[in-house]
Design a protein around this nucleic acid. Structure first.
Lengths: 222, 222
DNA sequence: CCAATATGTAATCATCGATTACATTTGGCG
DNA sequence: CGCCAAATGTAATCGATGATTACATATTGG
């Protein structure tokens, strides 16, 4: 019988109807949301995300989560959805500072923001990367946030091509190469490759910058 | 009492001493090896690799594997070691066909062989990529095979620089960018990204080729 | 030959995902 | 208001897994 935090034996009377912040009216306020947050936090702590531990943190029985998620993957899909949303928000925020007229600068900023978020939220990045939760949860939100980011770089490259800045006319190829580069870099960090490459923790972000600049120099018309 | 294949009640007498291929002399011939192979096969089948299932396939009790591997991660580390060895062998075989005098052609061939192996052995590639088993098993072999591959591209780029073929003098940056590119591409495939990019199964290898060529054109002196 | 060691077995634990039967709360409808 | 159905939570339980322990058997070297 492990860890039961909140005793909650008292207060068996009902309390108002549907207030948001109140003293846990026996029926949980919004368990679904709380479970997603708990799972996000678990991941951020580097722990395994288990349904039971999320339930424990929500001070709820082990079976309760299954009222809101048909199985673990469904919970993880919801977690992925939230993480993907945050990811997109941060990328778009980073792009707000860059002049719309300079598509390659925007492309660069996108790549940097991408890698930075991945480095600072490794567990969340892994969850949205795995693709496992695209299949199972099939959330429209998740797919949408993701394709928005794809469309973003697509527009940048189209604009760059229109301005005659690119060496190659095969934009899709350039786009996928760019994505593979930043995804690969982010995953190398996530998967612990950099120690083997003699890249110290503190140098990784600078290295990301260098690598992205190298790539952009390579695709830009000389 | 699930699935017990080999009856083996007979033959209770000892049989020669240390022959390799014989009729299972009660004490398993080389359980360690058999467990690694079973785990490799499980992974290749797309199944979860569990210690128990490996034991089942070796027709051995659930506790037996722990005589050879202190825990599941130790088994996985051994699996990673074997997969990494095969990976290295295949890459080096692919390079045997390319003239030593053309470092960029070799660099290209390396990248292609890298992505191809990853595509054809996705589960094994994932195991050697995760980096989780570098830490736990800390096998010298694994580390060695890996750094051999790193050294390989390092030499190629040094040679290319010596021949004046490269735009950038920062070879480490070029090397890491190239690795991030192929690793990212391989993982995009592994993680199921390409359907979202409208790249059909059959087009992926060609796309890999295009992406690698694009990268090499970018780093080569015009 | 025999005893120390290596290797395998049986039994057992704790944890986890998942399901089922039951309890309680909530909200809508007469 | 009062009651009933739906929503939501609990308790108990299942089967699978990683792991440990006590015990059994085979191998091998002195």
């Amino acid at each position: 019988m492990p860890t039961r935090r909140t005793p909650k034996p008292q207060t068996s009377k009902p309390r108002g109807r549907r207030q948001t912040s109140e003293a846990r009216p026996y029926h949980h306020g919004d368990l679904r949301r709380v479970l997603i947050d708990a799972a996000l936090q678990l991941a951020a702590e580097g722990a395994e995300v288990s349904v039971r531990e999320a339930a424990r943190r929500a001070a709820v029985s082990p079976g309760a989560p299954f009222r809101h998620f048909s199985n673990r993957d469904a919970l993880m899909a919801a977690v992925a959805e939230e993480a993907q949303r945050r990811f997109r928000v941060e990328i778009e925020a980073a792009l707000a500072d860059v002049p719309p007229a300079d598509p390659l600068a925007r492309f660069r900023a996108f790549g940097l923001a991408y890698v930075r978020w991945a480095m600072r939220n490794p567990a969340h990045f892994e969850i949205i990367s795995t693709g496992r939760y695209f299949a199972h949860g099939s959330s429209a939100e998740l797919t949408h946030d993701n394709s928005e980011l794809v469309a973003l770089t697509e527009r940048m490259l189209a604009e760059a091509a229109a301005q005659g800045l690119l060496r190659s006319a095969d934009l899709k190829r350039v786009q996928i190469a760019g994505r593979a580069l930043v995804y690969g870099f982010a995953r190398m960090n996530l998967d612990g490759h950099f120690p083997r490459w003699d890249v110290a923790e503190g140098e990784i972000e600078r290295m990301a910058e260098g690598v992205i600049d190298l790539f952009i120099a390579g695709i830009a018309k000389p």
